[in-house]
Simulated scan of single mutants.
Amino acid sequence: MSTVNELYQDVSGKQKNEYRDYMRIIDRMDWHSYDYTTWPCADLSFQDLEEGKNYDLWPFKPNLNEPHWVDLNNQIKSGIRRYGFVNKLKMPEQVLELSHEDATEILNDIKNLKNSDLSEFKDQIHEYGFSDENHFLWGIAILDSAEEKAYDAADDFLKEQKAKLDAQMDAHIEAAEAGGLLDPIKGIDMKTWAAANAKIAGGMDLDEVLKVVGTEKPIWDEVSAEWTARMSQDTTFAISKVYGDAFVNSNIGKFADAGNSQNVGSTASNNDIYEDFELYVKVMCHQNMGAAQGKDAASILQQYGLTVTDWSTVGMHWVTKMATDTRMALKMGELMEKYNAEFASAKVGDDIDF
């Protein structure tokens, strides 16, 4: 049988013909007797290793479903998962019998009860088949990791589907352009018309909008009627997509540099609402509860430094993110429950602590 010293040879950088004899040794090795704990450089002290450093010194790795020190030192350099990997910890049968959701919830509930350590909950830990606190914490980490992988897989699927839908819509838009459905009407293209409507919705005076567009009210009414008719007849929704994109990003074309009243008092461009998902849900719940109590949605938005047009842009921002983020979609339900209860217990028009 080959010895460890024979097997552990660093042939990195050499040509294949230079280590042909070494490959014969590897081929003759009985890998079923392989024990990663006996190999050179196998760090079994459970210390945290430097994450950015490569500890793989051996160019070959056995093809077994067993832990390898190469895996350990390159993939799990620190933390409780490293400890569990080295000790070949297994998930207790009591936990495996539970659904993943139930197991995660129960074990996290125990973990969240702790103060300085989990020793006071050792009976509960043993009840679920864990030998000690480290075994328990390893189990939590493994469940969390499995949950993260499931979310990542779901997000990857959503991204793939969104990419397909986006490509399909792009094709519809190209066809609409080729067919003349997006040709300007009396000199006013779809994007200008959409941006103008966004400014009007945001409070900009119609006369000022018409001045920026360079048209008069009778022509504007005729153009609006024609664009509306085209959208209603478009079964591919290509025109609606172009309209929606321009509406939520209305500082384009003739409105790119228009210093209009729509932006006065709006702090949306610097508002935390574009970074703070919880704040977005809070504002949404505030509006919903306000509507139920007969409050004006625009006045509620003003309390957050937002206009109606700002809110359309903010909404598109977060809807786009949620379309490919399963965690965010689930979190939204929890936050809505929290803030609906908060605003239901108080008059929405009252002063709110932001």
Results as ranks from 00 to 15, higher is better:
Ser45Met: 06
Asp10Ala: 07
Ser2Asn: 14
Ser119Phe: 12
Leu44Trp: 07
Glu127Thr: 11
Asp117Met: 05
His317Val: 00
Thr307Glu: 09
Tyr151Trp: 09
Leu210Tyr: 08
Val281Arg: 06
Gly79Met: 03
Lys331Ile: 00
Gly179Ile: 01
Glu208Arg: 08
Pro40Asn: 08
Ala167Glu: 13
Asp117Trp: 11
Asn5Glu: 15
Ala341Trp: 00
Asp117Thr: 13
Gly253Glu: 11
Tyr34Met: 04
Ser131Met: 13
Ala103Tyr: 01
Asp43Ala: 10
Leu57Asn: 10
Leu181Asp: 15
Val213Ile: 14
Glu120Ser: 15
Asp272Pro: 05
Asp221Gly: 05
Ala163His: 11
His68Ile: 00
Asp27Arg: 12
Ser78Ala: 14
Thr313Ser: 15
Gly180Ile: 04
Asp30Cys: 03
Asp144Ala: 02
His135Trp: 10
Lys111Asp: 15
Val223Gly: 05
Ser119Lys: 14
Ala141Glu: 12
Glu147Met: 04
Gly265Thr: 03
Asp183Asn: 13
Thr324Cys: 01
Asp21Met: 08
Val223Leu: 07
Asp325Thr: 00
Glu147Lys: 02
Gly305His: 09
Glu342Phe: 06
Thr320Gly: 11
Gly79Lys: 01
Ile26Thr: 07
Ala167Arg: 06
Met284Val: 07
Thr192Asp: 13
Leu335Val: 00
Val95Leu: 11
